[in-house]
Amino acid sequence: MPIGLLGKKLGQTRVYDAKGIIRPVTVVLAGPNRVLQCKTQQSDGYNAVQLGFNDQKEQRLTKALLGHIKKFNGVAVKRIQEFRNFSKEVKPGDVLGATLFSPGDYVDAIGLTKGRGFEGVVGRHGFAGGDATHGAKGWHRRSGAIGQRLFPGTVMRGMKMPGHMGQVRRTAQNLEVIQVHEADNLLLIKGAIPGSNGDYVVIRESKKQPKGWRPHAERPENVKKAEAKKK
């Protein structure tokens, strides 16, 4: 994980870009992120950076957490996230913000999806259910058969059934950073991000680049344009 931030999802809106095209964005409060412990290969067996987010009064923290923070003379924060192999050089006490990213970057957003409670197969797995009419009686949102006959005589593992849905960690990959607001520490990221408004989200540099992605200047149409201009 080269670089990343811990943030809070604020909500969704839309912005107009320079061409006047509407971009749907999720607004993420991405700072201040306080650098706490910096783990190294020698001392801890692996390289990582701990970032703290959501400044709090000291009385609101457990003594264990406060003690850990005090060890690095940090500001009291409610949430800590560790990032392995942080590619930016940092030391305890540093403050990171939204400016770690710039518009045009691609990021992954990791969050806890909204909890849906106990959900049936139609909502949870997209089953079609039965007819609403045409003589259907009490067979509207059921799953139907779940197995075969005497052989194999058992329900296959992983059979899709009703159950708890949501409130699981999910990653939305390859989202484009549309705007960065330095003053308010805001990241405007294209599209939706897992979780409710107000939830913590981890924003990290995307692990995979989108298919066919290239830096803006290297895209075929822009290369052609640049060559045409030279002529």
């Binding site: 909500g11 809106t13 912005v15 107009y16 607004v27 805001l186």
Partner: peptide, 14 residues
């Protein structure tokens, strides 16, 4: 707080 920041982003574009 959340809404304040969202409004701030939107109000610039009116």
């Amino acid at each position: 707080m959340n809404q304040v920041l969202l409004d701030k982003i939107e109000s610039k574009q009116f």
